[in-house]
């Protein structure tokens, strides 16, 4: 029982260790402003990673989310800029942009899911393909440059990223809500149970009368929707999208899911673990920026070591069980 606890709590222990390390290295680390920064910038990857947890738990994978985010941001900006002259600069226009991002996410997720379930192509291949497609589309839409939101709309939209209740900004609130709903869905909803069953053994799920294809499709749609939501909060930050938006977000999201204790082969999903994983990744970056520990050339190496360590810590128990 003790070992089990250590195993599941591993990511939390790592997170606490990082927080202590950060506080020791620089007192500014625990300042509310820094905490807000770290949490808010975790929010995009965080929401995407919550969706990714469902996809991975069902035995799937989605490599396209970073490109999808860039594409959706581009489309939303174009849509808002296009209607701004007609509708004027007010919240209606912004809401329309948000709607475009969310519906676009839904559609893009559905596309991935349909290719996986209906065309029966490996998720890795499908999403590798759509990753390239979305990335090219946004570069094409931006004409190789950057799509920027009109300055009036920017000013209006800006508080959606920077505003909030006190120093708890909207991205933090949204991320928290998404995480709580996600954790609840994985543990207590029929959908979550079916997702775990499919990832655990697809054949058993099918022989239990579960509509395997529909559930899998829904995981991709859910992920697409959450990418859309992340975009809704991303656009007001810099008010722009380009070919370099969201690069490698997919790998960060997948890494967060795995650090959090969800098995890459599927079957067991842990949404709270994913949240911890996202925070660990953000904190590493933050601490390295705050504390001149190593040459900036080595930041990637430090991250890599911590990711591998986090996973090794969790594996210890299962290898011990083998004997």
């Amino acid at each position: 029982m003790n070992r089990l606890n250590l195993h599941t709590l591993g990511p939390i222990v790592a997170l606490i260790a990082l927080i202590i390390l950060g506080a020791m290295l620089n007192p500014a680390f625990l300042a509310p402003a820094n905490i807000t920064n770290v949490l808010a910038r975790s929010a995009f990857i965080g929401m995407i990673a919550v969706g990714m947890t469902f996809v991975i738990t069902s035995g799937g994978l989605d490599l396209s989310v970073g490109s999808m985010a860039a594409f959706l941001a581009g489309v939303a900006i174009i849509a808002m800029n296009a209607v701004a002259p007609a509708l004027g600069v007010h919240w209606g226009t912004i809401l329309l942009g948000m709607g475009v991002a969310l519906l676009g996410g839904l559609a893009a997720g559905w596309l991935n899911g349909a290719l996986v379930t209906k065309a029966r192509i490996e998720p890795f291949i499908v999403t590798l393909g759509t990753m390239g497609i979305f990335r090219s589309l946004v570069t094409w839409l931006a004409d190789g440059g950057t799509l920027s939101l009109g300055s009036g709309l920017r000013t209006l939209y800006r508080p959606v990223y920077f505003g909030g209740i006190g120093w708890i900004t909207w991205p933090i609130i949204t991320f928290a809500v998404v995480a709580i709903i996600g954790e609840w869905m994985m543990r207590h909803s029929r959908f979550g149970r079916h997702v775990e069953a499919i990832g655990s053994n697809e054949r058993v799920a099918r022989y239990s009368g579960i509509d395997v294809n529909r559930v899998k499709l829904m995981t991709y749609v859910l992920l697409g929707l959450l990418v859309g939501l992340a975009v809704v909060l991303y656009v007001p930050r810099l008010g722009s999208a380009s070919g370099s938006t969201g690069v490698l977000w997919e790998l960060e999201a997948i890494a967060a899911v795995i650090i959090g204790g969800t098995a890459l082969k599927g079957g067991t999903g842990r949404v709270w673990g994913t949240v911890v994983g996202v925070l660990i990744l953000s904190l590493i970056d933050n601490i390295l920026n705050l504390a001149d520990l190593v040459s900036p050339y080595l930041n990637g190496a430090i991250q890599g070591v911590i990711i591998v360590l986090a996973v090794v810590l969790q594996r210890e128990k299962s290898t011990a069980d083998e004997r």
């Binding site: 620089n26 500014a28 680390f29 300042a31 402003a33 820094n34 920064n37 910038r41 930050r237 810099l238 722009s240 380009s242 370099s244 938006t245 969201g246 690069v247 970056d285 933050n286 920026n289 705050l290 001149d292 900036p296 930041n299």
Partner: peptide, 23 residues
Amino acid sequence: LDMQHGNWNRDDAFTVMQDYLSK
């Protein structure tokens, strides 16, 4: 005071600058 890589990328530069401002 400090030199970090922002990788000619808006998002990365935003993050690095936020941390400079905290530090």
